[in-house]
Amino acid sequence: MNTNKLIVSQSPHVSDKNSVQKIMYTVLIALIPAFLVSVYFFGLDAIRVQVIAIASCILVEWAIQKFLIKGNNTIPDGSAILTGVLLAFNVPSNLPWWIIVIGAIVAIGIGKMSFGGLGKNPFNPALVGRVFMLISFPVQMTSWPKVQVLNFAMTDAETGATPLAIMKEGISNGEPVSQIMNSMPTSYADWLTGEMGGSLGEISALALIIGGIYLVWKKVITIHTPLAIFGSIALFTGILYLIDPQSFADPAFHLLTGGVMLGAIYMATDMVTSPMVPKGMWIYGIGIGVITVLIRVWGAYPEGVSFAILIMNAFVPLINRSMKPKLFGEKKKEK
């Protein structure tokens, strides 16, 4: 006779090899190309911002978990690291360290832990941190250092505006779009590779798309949300462009500049804060796209992806409740 006590539990008795940890680290791997690009263009500053952001996110989560919630250590699940990386990706490389720390406290403390930790937050924590910083420290958050290829000297680089800011400024001064485009220091090809002013992670569309393809292949994200965002932005700005090419920029400009790529592929697809069913993802993505263009074209800020995602995050519970997957054997309506 076996003296061991048998374990009894309900079925199923097997599970696949997936885990929350794996998902988080897969996203981190997908962000590596964008990180390398940021180091390439912003030098050591990029690494400095990353390290501060990640370290402070981990510290804040650990402290809250240990002293306030008094729960298990949740650092190993990787979500704090991911929030740190995304937070760093959303700020300029020359941001003072104390602003990053404040951002991390807001992102993790208010954006995530106050709701009960991973999985319970209605808003993307990194974006909560970013928007808080943007509103509280508008000057620091919008002075973008000019890109300098492989410059590892920690000197104060010159600052310049992002293409979106140049565009907004130009249009509000009444200049025609074609003239603004000509005077712009960077071109489409630069935006694709990342040679433009902007936050750490948002500059290279190409690197972000490579990571996105990896995520889709690993089945961490589905393609619906990014496609819906890209599609709706392209369609909306395309219509505007066709109406008046001299007062509205073309769709390619809108897609490649600013935080659309980073937002659509990594922030909007955050599992916790995005809808569950494809139908819902389409609505959510289209909402983000439309709000982004509204803010960019008519709003006060040159960039609106963060706000758009946060606004649509608020609708997610509603979308989840109203969009149900099709039930097997659901009675079809009599025709």
């Binding site: 991973l118 999985g119 599992m271």
Partner: peptide, 14 residues
């Protein structure tokens, strides 16, 4: 094989 994984928060991965 018998041990179930430790349950953590749902991350709404769908």
């Amino acid at each position: 094989e018998s041990k179930r994984g430790v349950a953590t928060n749902c991350i709404r991965c769908a």
